[in-house]
Design a protein around this nucleic acid. Sequence first.
DNA 1: TATGAATGAGGATTCATTCAT
DNA 2: CATGAATGAATCCTCATTCAT
Lengths: 205, 205, 205, 205
Amino acid sequence: MNARSTTLVADTGRRNEAAILNAALEAFGTKGFNGASMRDVAKGAATSLSNLYNYFPSKSKLLAEALRHANAELQARVAGAVRDAGDDAPSRMREAVRAYVGFVVDHPVATLVATNEVRYLDPEDRAALVTDRDATQATFEHIVAQGAADGTFRTPYAADAARAILSTVGAIASWYRPDGRLSRGQLAEQHARYALALLESPLPQ
Amino acid sequence: MNARSTTLVADTGRRNEAAILNAALEAFGTKGFNGASMRDVAKGAATSLSNLYNYFPSKSKLLAEALRHANAELQARVAGAVRDAGDDAPSRMREAVRAYVGFVVDHPVATLVATNEVRYLDPEDRAALVTDRDATQATFEHIVAQGAADGTFRTPYAADAARAILSTVGAIASWYRPDGRLSRGQLAEQHARYALALLESPLPQ
Amino acid sequence: MNARSTTLVADTGRRNEAAILNAALEAFGTKGFNGASMRDVAKGAATSLSNLYNYFPSKSKLLAEALRHANAELQARVAGAVRDAGDDAPSRMREAVRAYVGFVVDHPVATLVATNEVRYLDPEDRAALVTDRDATQATFEHIVAQGAADGTFRTPYAADAARAILSTVGAIASWYRPDGRLSRGQLAEQHARYALALLESPLPQ
Amino acid sequence: MNARSTTLVADTGRRNEAAILNAALEAFGTKGFNGASMRDVAKGAATSLSNLYNYFPSKSKLLAEALRHANAELQARVAGAVRDAGDDAPSRMREAVRAYVGFVVDHPVATLVATNEVRYLDPEDRAALVTDRDATQATFEHIVAQGAADGTFRTPYAADAARAILSTVGAIASWYRPDGRLSRGQLAEQHARYALALLESPLPQ
DNA sequence: TATGAATGAGGATTCATTCAT
DNA sequence: CATGAATGAATCCTCATTCAT
């Protein structure tokens, strides 16, 4: 069962750190990195502006840290789902997509920040984050490669399929509303099927 | 053959208008709406900061106008492609996707702006733009509906398939490089197939 | 009979000059000299911004010219009233005040400009205007002196009484509304009596 | 004995607040609200431009606060003078006028700001200030009413007399110079007599 | 840790004025 | 005369960041 906490970052041991990180995700997600001010973040974290600098040395590093947490959570969910899945490529892809959809639905704002605001990081932080993200993507790519190798996924464009799948799932964050037509589970099911179909995998029925 | 002009907006009759709009797309795409300053735009358009305000009353309206042009061009390309395609749903979908990919590849920066910076518009401008965008999306939805009705597209999730396809194609803008592994044509071909596969349409071979 | 034109400056021979001057008085009166822009004036005069400079070399000179017209009209009214009055000081004071009140009521905005915005003139223009204004004030001072000399006005502070009277009358402009409790005539009558009382002149009844 | 401090606002507890308010009164009085820049105010208060915004959220609110202080001081002086005066209307009017003249002479710049720049306030602030000002005016009106009721003030226009008196006294601010012909006390005496005469009160001699 | 005060740089926007037509 | 386009200086205000406490 997936945890569905409203805030992404749990207590970190330092008094206000989690509150600041979550407020940063919220502020950057709502107004964009450049549109949100450190004052906005401070207000969201219910602390003072100057206190932010006791935790993070700059706005940019604050974004980096927030994104690190978001990525770690995403990666953990996906990795766990794959671990718990069967051995065949379709099952593993199915569960990976379902986990990813779950994360996006639980944390759409963080997902938006992770896709839209990465470019405002310092080069080194951006590089580190892209590496993290690539690790997640690699999980999907391995599954695709597995299915392509054993003939289950018959798409002639296996090399790029993972990226196509991930962009579709990530885009959910930009339109998803909790009270929308589709439930969390339906959305996961739907995107799992989209993914397998795109991979030209045999489908039930 | 599609024109591949580096600038999206052609001359509009007013002296500097096109230059300003193109500079705005470039600046907003490169640094984000809030990260780019009106000075950046002015510099890109080779005019003075204050002269921008002889053409557009505010930064936000400038963005709105630029996006209006981008959407119009996209819509025209897609509509033209569909018009020139065969009558069956797969042919039409194929050409629609190819045209969309062509636009994204020709104007990746404008595409990024159109997806990432819309939220900075005034509510009315945003609404107008969403309406425009929905019109383009509706073109795809109609094709999906056609194929679903005649049994060609067998996906059980036809209602949301157009959005999934469009998000994949739009995401190309965030990683495409003209000197990348795939040519423009290959990219179009690839995404056309991804789309038809996702729709569970019969595929060649 | 007093003319009660809504605009102070009548046609001057040059096409748009009067319209510009009246628009300037209106704009400067409503928003203040620094609060009103040349664009505001142009809009009010229904002409283009740049065309203003075909008539007046600068915003400051435009104000100077407008105030010159206002002062001339005021002075003409007061002088005429005094000329038409009887020979005794009370009658002359009474008519002078009534004429002044009439001007203020007919042109409250111009009166406000004349009292509040003079300081924004170039030194030479301001000096010229103060001279003009002193001429009007001198009319009142002469009457006061006449009454003081012949014993009709018994105030011990005759030297400053004219200024006191004029400031009261001028202040009408800041609260007068055409639909107010007092009619134009009642206001004139009232202030005439205030003036004579202040001068310690014998009053009817 | 009246204090004649050159600055109106005394220390308020917050480090620079009084200095900023006094600098604002000086700047707005000298150059007008729109003619004075926040930089001017900062310079006058010997602090940085941006620090002003740690004390007041906008130029307009700064003006509002400065005027609030000025009005409070004026009202306190007038109320105190009336309290210390005799019981009869002429004595009370005399002391009220003398106190008002004293304020105007001590703070001519603040008086000018209070009369000329009120219109640049936000509507709510303007309303609040007008209410404050009306309270001071009401003090005078009550005295007039008292004298009218007991037959001491025989003017037929008692209802508007307070306003006439106040406008005359307020106008002192626009021409008063400390080194002028009349001393502070003479000016007070003179205007007290003008006021009583205007009210058609019996006068000495 | 936590905060209020402080600041220099930079943001969008407006302005009076000029110029080419 | 009349105009639209152009511009440099100045406007109010916000920002990320620092510092003293």
